[in-house]
Design a protein around this nucleic acid. Sequence first.
DNA 1: TTGCTCCTCACGTCACGTGAGGTGGC
DNA 2: TTGCTCCTCACGTCACGTGAGGTGGC
Lengths: 238, 238
Amino acid sequence: MTERPPHGQRWRIGELADATGLTVRTLHHYEHVGLLAPSARSDGNQRLYEEDDVRRLYRIIALRDLGLSLADIRRLLDEDRGALAEVLRAHLAHVDAELARLGRLRTLLERACAGAERMGEPADALAAIEAMSLVAKRAEAREAEPHDETEAAWRELGAQLRACMDAREVPYSPCVRALAHRARALLFEFTGGDRSTMDALVFLRRRDPPQNLAGWDPALFRYLDEALACLASSENEG
Amino acid sequence: MTERPPHGQRWRIGELADATGLTVRTLHHYEHVGLLAPSARSDGNQRLYEEDDVRRLYRIIALRDLGLSLADIRRLLDEDRGALAEVLRAHLAHVDAELARLGRLRTLLERACAGAERMGEPADALAAIEAMSLVAKRAEAREAEPHDETEAAWRELGAQLRACMDAREVPYSPCVRALAHRARALLFEFTGGDRSTMDALVFLRRRDPPQNLAGWDPALFRYLDEALACLASSENEG
DNA sequence: TTGCTCCTCACGTCACGTGAGGTGGC
DNA sequence: TTGCTCCTCACGTCACGTGAGGTGGC
């Protein structure tokens, strides 16, 4: 680590790079964007940085390490030092937003990892991830406009099915079969008729039960599962 | 929202863009990087996407939303579907690292905001931020190599000063003055002799006391502060 | 004279955005 | 004929990395 240059108080570019841990190219770049120009040049046109330049560089590095853009740093150092607190606040808000986004992403990624590891076929895993993405987007859309007509349909179906469940109707009774048909049709519509997406959706719901989705609870989902299984087996027999 | 195209099962590029929320330019880009090419073109050379293309696009979008690069997505869809779980795990690790980095950054930024808002002069605030950056880097370096000689010096000075404090030596006694001199010299060396950085460092330490830094505790810091104040006032008188 | 450092272009990165200038379909 | 959508380049973004080809200082 060269700390003091051998030529009085002037640093050559390589010396300054060594002392700060930056690259020579980075110092070139800072000069190119008007952030830091050396106060002098040697006879052979080599850059010579003086004490003031070095002091400025350390401030640049400190602000850069806080994540500010070079344009912001330039503005703060050259034009508007008073804006410092304001710019830092704005940047903090931006970092918070990034943290929130990455947190959500992390949740999705973890589910996708679990899915990808338990699915046997890679194609199934891809379908599961696609279904997950689809569900996440529906959830976002629900945030924006809560009275979605698809949701209303599921809510009504849920209410009817719950009435059957409370009345202890067996899953193969005609009215439950009718509701199971209706559920399958809605699911078909929701997934665009894609078989593997439908299966992946069912798989995901089992692993990761949604809370109070359109008035559905785990018990109601299990009741529907039974009804769907009855429907499928009777169709296979017929 | 155009959901079904009017020409059988083929989508024009604008229709597909509307349906997916992407831009036409994005679809051009995906074709350019070999990620998604339409299966057909019209007589007038317009792109015509078919069902398989659309299905592929939805998978691309799902994987992209998980933060994968287009190159990774291409590899997963075209070459090596088995690598899915592995790639997702690696990406999760990367996201975790980013979260950790942003968390540390957030802490620094918050301190910098507090500093910038309480400092009167913007120049002082800049010096404080620079000092903070400097301290943070020393801390990192300490992680790597804990037996720093600067730290040893502070540790020894701390022990001697603590002996004085425990013996109830008054701050202006000769031996305490000698230690205060030594402390000032160390601080001078640490900051490279920069006055405003020294002041900012002192300010930061008051706002944000370091825990057990080289054996120092808040009481010991206060004792040193008194000794330094005595030294300064006696020098101003002389 | 031999290395080493320095110099100035200039293309590449990543996922597109944003025109520019021109043509096809209703 | 008028809009609208489509087409193909091609430069710009952000903070540099990575050569290429040549010169200066010990």
